[in-house]
Structure formats: C-alpha cells, structure tokens
Design a binder for these strands. Structure first.
Length: 460
RNA sequence: GGCUGGGUGGCAGAGUGGUCAUGCAGCGGAUUGCAAAUCCGUCUACGCCGGUUCGAUUCCGACCCUAGCCUCCA
C-alpha cells in the first residue's frame, strides 16, 4: 500500500487514486531563461523517480510538467540580450531537454508551455471576476482577492492575519490588500503582450499552472509536485484560483521536494551559489548525480559537495562491479529483495532504504557467483530490474567501469597493450616489471584487477 | 515576529520503544607473487536537560543550535 506525505495535511497518507489504477500528476517545471542548475535537477530526478515507481506499482500515470516560457525574468533577460523572448526560451528549452536526457529523465506525458494556454488563463480570470474573487486594480492589472477565498493559507499553514503581520509585506496602493496577487499584468510599451478583456497584457505567474493542469488533467487530479519553495505563495495561490473557479477540491496530494544546499545554504539563483547541471557533468557522470540525489530522501535538504559525488561514484562502482561478467539471468519472481524494495518505496518513496536493498543484492551476487553462476545471474537481473525502477544501473557494467569520470590520456588500445606486456612479465615471474606497469597505469587513473585467467581494468 | 522542517557513529545518509540500515573510510582475517576486487569479522552514534516506561536515539515537555518559507526562486 502506497503512502505519500501530503504537504496539505503535513502527514503521510494512504494514497487512493481518484480513478482506480490511474494517476494524474502535475509538476511545476522550469522557467526557461538560463541553464538548469542542480536544484532543478533535483525536481527532475525526484519526480522522475516518482513517475517510474508509480508505473512500476501498476498505475497508469499521466504526468504533466510545464514550462514557464513567459515571465518578468524572461523579458528582462531577452532585453539584455537584445533578442526576442521566444529565441531565448527556445534555446533554453533545448538545453533543458539535453540535460534531462543526460540524467535519464523520462519525458513527461505532456510538457505544456504557458504561452500556449493564454486563452485558458483568460477564461479562468473571467470566471474569477464574475464570481467576485478577482478585480481590476488601479493600474489596470487584475488581482485575486485573497480575502474572498476561505481556505487561503491551508497549504502553507498560514493565516491571513499572520501573513499581514509579516515583516516583508510592502504596502501597495494599487491593490486592495497587499496579499492580493496578480492574475493579469497590463503590458508596458514594448513588452510581449496578448489581447484580453482587460487590454493588452500577460499572465501572472500562478495562473498558468491552474490553466495548464486543468486543460490536461481536469479540474481535480491526484498529485501536484514541485520544489519546496513553491509551496508558498505559488501553490497556495494555485489552489485559491482553481478552487474558487470550480468550487471544489483541486488536488488531493501535494508533494514538495527539499533543496540542494551549498555549505548548508540553499542553492539558488538569487544567492548566486548555484552549479548548473552541465557544470557538474564536466567532472561527474550523470548517473552519479542521479544516485547522489536518490541516496537521500526527497524531502530532506541535500548538501552538495565533491565528497558527496565521490561517494556516489564509489557506491555505483560497487554495484556495477557486482554486475560485471555476469551472464544473462532471469529476474527472481517475488523475491524478498523486491518485497523490501517495494515496501521502502511504498513508504513515501524511501529511496535511501530501497537502495540499501540493492547493496544486499550485490553482496549476495558476490557471495554466490563462484558456486552458482546462474543464481548469481538471476540475482544480477533482479538487481538491474529494481535499480531500473530508480533509473539506475542502466549501463553495461564493463563499459561503465571503464568509462570513469572523464577520459584519461590513455586510449583503451594503449591500456590493453600495456596489460599484454605485463602479462608477459608475469608469465616470466618478472614481478618488478609487472608492478612497474601496474603503477604506471595507476598513475594514469587506470586500476588493474588480476582474475584467474585474465586481467580486467577500470578507470578510477 | 509568524509558520514548516532538521540535529544519528570519521564522512554521507536511513530507521526504530528492547537484534543489522546502507555506502565510503578504519581495524583484523581469508584470498593474491604483491596488489585490486571480493568474502568473513570488527570499532567510533543517536544536540542538551527533564518526564512517561521494566526499558528511549525512538514518545512527551523545556532549552540550545540550524535550515527553509513569509519577496523572484525548484
């Protein structure tokens, strides 16, 4: 039985889909004006893991992850670059897809863009105005009237008076209440704009997700996810808009992933302490990034450091080493390993515990491979199968181990050649020469392992 | 100030009212020409102070420290 922690109720709940065997899930994606950083990578990886596991658990999942391709930052950046905003966004959408492919992120079922749902947004705003939840402000922007929505604050656990008492609420003459948020922004000269009943303008940030999710998933769906920082105000506002518009529950389960940190501080654009995915891919394999993220629970903060990535590399090396040289096997049906793996995943996606099962499989493979190779192969198939649910261990073991972090100066052919020379020395019991060659390779980041009849190698 | 979280062994990171997380590192052994890899064994824990309990790292309360949100942010 699957349990998911629901940010709306602050506790784990038994998950019951609205329609049996089907799940409709929406995740807030990127605003595309720059390269994705590790924080974005975490959202991608976490919800990719969720998507994969829900499917492995037998659900038919419709997964929507949007792209925000119009907003103030995009306009600003496009102006700085002196290019149309569409040129900017399409470039970074391509870059994002490249990063996702590297990280083995499965494409969502739908990937809608804000600019393609303007009509839907206008429709919602019109309904909100009709129902008295929205008004045109003194600057021609359209605002949501927070005081009209009874449940405002239920997701983030805030009360309106607490919010008003907040230190950072600025007085704003154009709104009735400083907490009211913008649904539609009137365009200034030269800004991208769409025609609307309130004049030329563009959507506010929150409305796009209400419109896109509604178009693709209906007015009521199962899971809505995103980074923890979106809980307030973004998701709170989404609930306010959608539920005021349709008059019933918008989403059953809200999921929020924790942040990536640098030196115990949130990684973010505003703090300028971020690493882009492509930065990190210079020194580490994508799978190492993925493992690093999955090794801790999705709601925990995750401190980024080279040590953590090195750790991930060592862990993956151990798993791939167990898989190396195994014949093809059959996945063990209903094994104790699989049951414990699923039990861990059913407990709010406890990937850390699920991964520990992978290591137990690896140990068992190593234990039995001498006496019972076919059993080892079956265990190996089981290991690959379970790891696959997390999007791990998808590579061929030998290739992964030889791949290393980055290509060393030595070519595979050179390495093989040196190994041949060393083999000759060993046949003649010329240990000094044999060790010299091994040290030489080690200095180049190549580690040798002498087996019964042959020598294998891997890059450190 | 309001609201959420978190403090676990050398490091990373799960979890539990009374037997093991797991990975890396350390130590001892097996194996090896020596290594590497692997296997077996093994050591360093649960912020602080009280309470509940036969027993608490795990439940309750206070305290200290720390992160996040309250402004764009994954």
């Amino acid at each position: 039985m699957l349990n998911i922690y629901n940010s709306l109720t602050n506790r784990k709940e038994v998950f019951i889909p609205i329609e049996p065997h089907k799940i409709r899930m929406y995740v807030c994606g990127m605003t595309v004006y720059d390269y994705c950083h590790l924080g974005h990578a975490r959202v991608m990886v976490v919800f990719d893991m969720v998507y994969r596991y829900l499917q492995a658990a037998g659900y038919q999942v419709t997964y929507v992850r949007n792209i925000t391709d119009i907003d103030d930052k995009i306009i600003k950046r496009a102006n700085e670059n002196g290019e149309p905003f569409q040129a900017l966004t399409s470039r970074f959408i391509d870059a994002m897809h490249e990063d996702e492919r590297a990280l083995k992120i499965l494409p969502p079922t739908h990937e809608p863009r804000a600019t393609q749902s303007i009509a839907g947004m206008i429709q919602i705003i019109e309904t909100l105005i009709e129902k008295g939840f929205a008004y045109v402000g003194r600057n021609q922007d359209v605002y949501y009237d927070v005081s009209q929505f009874e449940g405002y604050g239920k997701l983030s656990g805030r009360k309106l008076e607490d919010l008003r008492a907040g230190e950072r609420i600025a007085i704003d003459e154009v709104k009735d209440d400083p907490l009211d948020f913008v649904l539609w922004k009137a365009a200034k000269a030269g800004e991208p704009a769409w025609d609307s009943p309130w004049g030329n303008g563009r959507p506010g940030w929150h409305i796009e997700c209400s419109a896109m999710s509604m178009e693709l998933l209906g007015h009521h769906f199962d899971i809505h996810g995103g980074g923890h920082d979106l809980q307030f105000p973004h998701h709170e506002n989404e609930i306010a808009q959608s539920e005021a518009c349709h008059g019933h529950t918008y989403v059953n389960v809200w999921m929020h992933n924790g942040f990536i940190r640098i030196n115990d501080e949130k990684m973010s654009k505003s703090l300028n302490n971020f690493f882009t995915i492509r930065d990190v891919l210079q020194s580490y394999k994508a799978e190492e990034i993925r493992y690093f993220m999955l090794n801790s629970h999705y709601r925990s903060p995750l401190n980024y450091s080279n040590e953590s990535l090195d750790n991930a590399r060592a862990a993956l090396t151990r798993l791939y080493t167990a898989l190396r040289d195994l014949p093809v096997g059959t996945v063990l049906a209903r094994s104790d390993y699989e049951q414990r793996f699923r039990a861990a995943m059913d407990d709010d996606f406890n990937t850390s515990e699920a991964i520990s099962v992978l290591f137990e499989l690896a140990r068992e493979i190593n234990r039995v491979r001498q006496e019972d190779l076919s059993q080892a192969a079956n265990l190996g198939a089981t290991l690959k199968y379970l790891a696959g649910i997390l999007g791990l261990l998808d590579e061929e073991a030998e290739a992964w181990l030889r791949g290393g972090s980055q290509t060393t100066g030595l070519s595979d052919a050179t390495i093989d050649n040196l190994i041949r020379q060393r083999l000759e020395a060993r046949t003649n019991k010329n240990w000094a020469e044999s060790d010299r060659i091994r040290d030489e390779l080690k200095a180049q980041g190549v580690i040798l392992e002498d087996k019964a009849g042959h020598t294998t190698w891997r890059r450190a």
